[in-house]
């Protein structure tokens, strides 16, 4: 960590996007969240790193290295340090998981190593509209699918439509049957960011995860906070929770429950063990109510 204000903004970002203010599960805990990078070797060249309050991945191939989110400038420097403990191969690619600043600051660190930055094309509008001096502009973008190869090691960048954002990439590692999903699925947790993810797409969210399940034979997932790894069931569970939430709020509307009373009227006992259920269920339901009211 370089400056106190960065520490604060990171801790806020964690509070924003994960469902609790607990530090990430790996890395030393501090009052400001997880400091210092903690790397987990998944095997066959795939690693996941927890740094700066978020989680990213890197893949080492015969010809170079591909990195997921840079997270922040100090986190990116830590991630680069973790990579250099494993390999001296060039950093070929950085892939932004989506456009939110708590994940994509610090790309310059890898650009200076020669990396090309990729994102799904819808992110460009967000990044250009709200420039952040710490966010490097993507060099390349894709629409539906892009395969990147670092030498006998590939990743598929897959766009399954709007979910947590309208430009989230599912990074699929076919050799490992692992998908890296940032923020759309926090394993066995309710919806984050104070429960009211403002630019999420509550209904298309379900379609997006269903498409991922239908089209991609992943067995495990790596999330964008906490972690490091969860079974396929975590994705299915999150989709089912979202659908149950949509159904429950719609049922209250159809019953004629006054709008102001709907968030507290919703109860989903089947999901009561999800992290954040007691704290955020009403806020989640309120967000769904807005969806049914205005269409977003």
């Amino acid at each position: 960590m370089k400056t106190p204000s960065l520490i604060l903004s990171l801790s806020l970002a964690v509070a924003g996007c994960s469902t609790t203010q607990e530090p990430a599960s790996s890395g030393p805990a501090t009052p400001f969240g997880s400091l210092g990078a903690m790397t987990t070797n998944i095997g066959d060249g795939l690693y996941t790193v927890s740094a700066g309050g978020a989680r990213t991945v890197f893949l080492v191939g015969d010809e170079g290295v591909l990195v997921g989110d840079p997270i922040s400038t100090p986190a990116a420097e830590q991630i680069l340090g973790e990579i250099r403990k494993v390999t001296n191969k060039p950093i070929r690619y950085v892939v932004y998981s989506h456009s939110h600043w708590d994940h994509i600051r610090g790309g310059q660190v890898f650009k200076e190593e020669g990396a090309e930055i990729w994102s799904q094309e819808n992110c460009l509008a967000h990044i250009y509209r709200n420039p952040n001096p710490e966010v490097a502009y993507p060099d390349r973008s894709y629409t539906q699918k892009q395969v990147l190869d670092v030498g006998n090691a590939t990743v598929e960048l897959l766009y399954h439509g709007p979910n947590h954002s309208d430009c989230s990439t599912h990074m699929y590692f076919p050799n490992h049957k692992i998908v890296h999903i940032v923020d759309t699925v926090q394993p066995y947790a309710v919806s984050g960011a104070g429960g009211r993810m403002n630019d999420s797409y509550p209904k298309l969210f379900v379609d997006s995860l269903q498409m991922l399940e239908d089209e991609v034979p992943f067995e495990r997932m790596i999330p964008g906070h906490g972690g490091p790894i969860a079974p396929r069931d975590a994705v299915i569970n999150r989709r089912k929770y979202q659908q149950a939430l949509l159904d429950a709020v719609k049922a209250e509307i159809d019953k004629g429950t006054p709008f102001g009373k709907i968030p507290d009227a919703v109860s989903l006992p089947k999901f009561k063990d999800l992290r954040g259920y007691d704290q955020y269920l009403a806020a989640n339901a309120q967000r769904i109510l807005i969806y049914y009211t205005i269409g977003w």
């Binding site: 903004s9 806020l12 709200n130 966010v135 954002s165 104070g194």
Partner: peptide, 11 residues
């Protein structure tokens, strides 16, 4: 909270 996210996440 909405303004906070605007300043910290860029949307």
């Amino acid at each position: 909270e909405r303004i906070l996210f605007y300043h910290t996440m860029g949307w």
